[in-house]
Computed example of a mutant assay.
Amino acid sequence: MKKKLLPIIMILVLLIAIPVQAFAKMPEVDMQLRYLNIGDSIAYGLSAAPGLSYFERYAKYLEDNYGLDENWPYPEAGGAVNAGVEGLDSMELLEALQENTQLKGLVMQADVITISIGGNNLLTPVIGAVAELYEVDPSSYPSSGAFIQALLGEIGAEGEMAWNMRLAAFTASALSSDPGTLGYALEARTEQFLSDWPAILDEIEELNPDAHIIAMTLYNPIEEEDNLDLYHRYEELVRPMNKAIMKTQNRAMVAKVEKSFAKEPDAVAFKLTWTDGYPPVLIDPHPTTMGHGIIFEELMKGRSPRSFQ
């Protein structure tokens, strides 16, 4: 019995000898994170209310919970830089990571990098097809928002019958795989993304192998009830792009935006059907303020940036 008690007594003595401070909660270290957001018009924050883009929300979350380097890369930035560019596609992002000295410098220094890219691979040909239908030049407008407003004016002036005829022609072109059609261009741009995506990660990892990267999957802005043919066509195109992103989960965390958006129609204000005598006024494929909030929630589901230091 005494032999059994001896180890217990020794353990008790050791516990008494250890200072109480050793059991106290260790003070949290101010990490002074550097947050960089790169990508397209979604990354840029288009269609979100001021201060409520996913970038602004996530930057505040990082600041409140982990701390940001207030002097990076300059005091006014406060440790968070939004390098999103309206209209950017995967080819242009890859080129920028290879050749843009300023962007490369930011990537090299960043602790956390969020990426939204791929949507314009499909949207750019769509804009081109719509511009051709209505004989307007998108480049003559200062922003995609201004182009959309001008297009709405054309749609409203022509009326429902003309809209439906143009939509039928647009749909037929989108569903086709023949050279010269919209569908042919969309398929080519999807293939381009499949080539660009791993190369984008290669560039980031070469510049900064320690960065915590979060990539966002691509959502379908078209509702099934609104236009079944275009909904399924878009799904055919975006599905392999999302699979490519999911395949790289060992290299980047993935925010599964498309699943959350599918559950919330108001995440995007997009509608093609002309109803009740009024033209379709919901033709903005970008996330609404609610949509940006959903993206932010998905970003927070990833591992804590603390574990990547």
Rank of each mutant, 00 (worst) to 15 (best):
E28Q: 04
I11L: 15
K243I: 04
E154H: 10
N242A: 12
T273N: 12
N71S: 10
V281W: 09
G78M: 02
T124G: 03
T289S: 11
S140L: 11
T124I: 14
T181E: 14
V112I: 06
I16P: 00
L62N: 02
G78K: 01
T181A: 15
G78R: 02
G291P: 02
M241H: 09
P75Q: 02
E191G: 14
D284W: 05
I222D: 03
M253G: 15
M91D: 05
A146S: 06
R251H: 05
L218G: 12
I200M: 08
L106G: 00
T171H: 11
S90M: 05
I38E: 12
N121C: 07
K243Q: 11
T288I: 03
I11W: 07
L14V: 14
E258L: 05
E258T: 08
Y134Q: 05
I155C: 04
P280K: 08
V81N: 05
S173Y: 10
G119P: 11
P50K: 04
D178T: 13
I127G: 10
M91Q: 06
I213F: 05
D69I: 01
E235D: 09
M241D: 07
I127T: 13
Y35W: 08
G39Q: 12
M26R: 03
R306D: 09
P7G: 08
I42D: 09
P73M: 01
P287Y: 07
V20N: 13
L152W: 02
E203C: 08
P221K: 07
